[in-house]
Design a binder for these strands. Structure first.
Length: 462
RNA sequence: GGCUGGAUGGCAGAGUGGUCAUGCAGCGGACUGCAACUCCGUUAACGCCGGUUCGAUUCCGACUCCAGCCUCCA
């Protein structure tokens, strides 16, 4: 039985899709004006694991993740660069796709862009105005009228009146109520914008997601996800806009992934303490980064450090060392394995990846024990290990490729082979001094020699 | 100030009303020419104070500390 923690009810609930066997999921993507940082990667990996697992559980998943490609930050950055905003967003969307692919994040089924849905956005605002849930201010801005939506606060648990007291809510003279938020912003005549019944302008951030989720998944859908930092006000506003417009329940389940921290503070653009995905991938294997992101539960914070990357490296080395020498391709598939059951039980419990990974380690131990005595079983378990790990998006490489490469080290296989051969001869001659000298030489090249019954293997030190 | 979540062994990180997390590191063995890999064994934890209970790290309450949101943010 699959259970998911629902932020709306603040409990783990048994998951039941609206339409049997099918799941619609909408996740707030990113605003594309810079490279992906590790916090973005966490969100993408978290929901990649969710969708992979839901599919493995037999559901047909329609995964929608939007792109905010019109926003004041984008416009400001483009103007700083002296380029068209669409050139800027196109460039960073391409970069995002590259980074995602490196991290083995599968593309969503649909990736709607805000600028591609202006019609739907305008239509939704029209409906809200008709229903007296929104109003046009004198300057052409359109605001959502929070006062007219009594359920406001039900997702974030913020109290309507306490929001009023909040010292930091801006009080614009254009707004009727300080809690109101913008749906449509008027643009200067020579600025970026679209024509609308309220004048030339551009959409507010919150309405984009309401319009795009509605367009792709309908009024009511199964799961809405995003970073925990979006819960208020973004997701609260989405609920208000969508439910006010349609009169129906919006998302059934709300999932929020935890933050990525650096020195115990959230990694974010505004704190300027972020590491981009590409700079980390210059030093670490993508699978190592991916492991780091799934080694903690998706709702918990992760504290990023060099040390945590080192730990993830050790973990992957252990996995790949285990797979080394196994014949997985021709292994008969193992059915009804207790390991598989335990793995699925862990994942069924609100996608408990750390526990699922601990099951994989138990398999590693079992495989290593059986390698010599029962290679058939070891191969079968190895195949299962890879299949389960793949559901988490790890162990997608081969032991040779993983263990014999390191982004930070240049590998000259020919030279290594020659030295290994020379050392083999020295060992045959029982010239231990020479053999050790060659091993030191290899070590200087970051090559670790491993002597086995059938010759010496090697791997690259990380 | 309001809302939300957290505090687990040297580190990372699950979980549970009584009996094993798991990984890294450590310790003792096996294997090895010596190592590495691997195997066997092993040490060690539940913020603080009360309460409920035969028994609490796990449930309840107070306290301390930490983080997120309340302003753009995954």
């Amino acid at each position: 039985m699959l259970t998911i923690y629902n932020s709306l009810t603040q409990t783990k609930e048994e998951f039941k899709p609206i339409n049997e066997g099918k799941i619609g999921i909408y996740v707030c993507g990113i605003t594309t004006y810079d490279y992906l940082h590790l916090g973005h990667a966490r969100m993408m990996v978290a929901f990649d694991v969710v969708t992979r697992y839901l599919r493995a559980s037999g559901f047909e998943v329609n995964y929608v993740r939007n792109i905010t490609d019109i926003d004041d930050k984008i416009l400001n950055r483009a103007s700083e660069n002296g380029e068209l905003f669409s050139d800027l967003t196109d460039r960073f969307i391409d970069a995002m796709h590259e980074d995602e692919a490196a991290l083995a994040v599968l593309p969503p089924n649909v990736e709607p862009r805000a600028t591609g849905h202006i019609t739907e956005i305008v239509d939704m605002i029209k409906v809200l105005i008709e229903k007296d849930m929104a109003y046009r201010a004198d300057n052409g801005d359109v605001y959502f009228s929070v006062m007219n939506f009594p359920d406001y606060g039900k997702l974030s648990k913020m109290k309507m009146d306490e929001l009023l007291d909040g010292a930091r809510i801006e009080v614009g003279e254009l707004k009727k109520d300080p809690r109101d938020f913008v749906l449509w912003k008027s643009s200067a005549d020579d600025g970026v914008g679209w024509d609308s019944p309220w004048g030339y302008g551009r959409p507010g951030w919150h309405i984009e997601c309401s319009a795009m989720s509605n367009c792709c998944l309908g009024d009511n859908f199964d799961i809405h996800g995003g970073g925990s930092d979006l819960l208020f006000p973004h997701h609260e506003n989405e609920v208000a806009q969508s439910e006010a417009a349609t009169g129906k329940r919006f998302a059934n389940v709300w999932m929020h992934n935890g933050p990525l921290r650096v020195d115990n503070e959230k990694m974010s653009k505004s704190l300027n303490n972020f590491f981009t995905v590409r700079e980390i991938l210059a030093d670490y294997d993508a699978e190592v980064v991916r492991h780091l992101l799934i080694a903690s539960h998706y709702r918990s914070p992760i504290n990023y450090s060099e040390q945590s990357l080192q730990q993830s490296t050790s973990v992957l080395e252990r996995f790949y060392n285990c797979l080394k020498g196994l014949d997985i391709a021709s292994a008969k598939s193992l059915t009804n394995s207790r390991f598989e059951k335990a793995f699925f039980a862990a994942m069924d419990d609100d996608f408990n990846t750390p526990e699922a990974i601990s099951v994989l380690f138990e398999m590693v131990k079992e495989i290593n024990k059986n390698k010599e005595t029962d290679s058939g079983l070891a191969n079968q378990l190895g195949a299962l290990l890879v299949r389960l790990a793949n559901l988490l998006g790890i162990l997608q490489s081969t032991p040779e490729a993983f263990l014999r490469s390191n982004i930070a080290v240049e590998v000259n296989e020919q030279e290594i082979d020659q030295l290994i051969a020379a050392r083999k001869q020295a060992r045959a001659d029982k010239d231990w001094a020479l053999a050790d000298e060659i091993r030191d030489q290899l070590a200087a090249m970051k090559v670790v020699v491993e002597d086995g019954a059938d010759g010496s293997g090697w791997r690259i030190e990380r």
